[in-house]
């Protein structure tokens, strides 16, 4: 195809980083879903509380946010590469 739009050495890295995003979302979803419905489906009388919040909410939404934050920082710092984004001269 024209202008070598499908062949570019940089795509290999870019594709891998895009898949990282997909992996993070899947992990995020499992964490969120697992804690929310795993712990939250009991009757409210038997809920445990952490810092005043019901345990399901604390783990799923609050800790989940912290974990995703740390994971994102980790992934970006250690797996994402700096590169030039400019189009090469034709």
């Amino acid at each position: 195809m024209k202008r070598k739009e499908w062949t570019d050495k940089r795509y290999k890295t870019a594709n891998r980083e895009a898949w990282t995003g997909v992996a993070l979302v899947i992990f995020n979803f499992i964490w969120w879903f697992g804690f929310a419905y795993g712990l939250g489906s009991k009757s409210p009388e038997s809920y445990q509380y952490i810092f005043g919040f019901p345990a399901w909410f604390f783990f799923s939404c609050i800790l989940g946010f912290v974990v995703m934050m740390l994971l994102t920082v980790f992934v970006v710092k250690f797996f994402f590469k700096d590169m030039s984004l400019e189009a090469e001269e034709e």
């Binding site: 940089r10 895009a18 799923s60």
Partner: peptide, 23 residues
Amino acid sequence: LLSMTQLATGYFVLMVLGKRFAI
């Protein structure tokens, strides 16, 4: 809980469109 599904937008948009879209 429902609103926290939006957390994903923070990293997902920029990671998935990412460098390839910029290039």
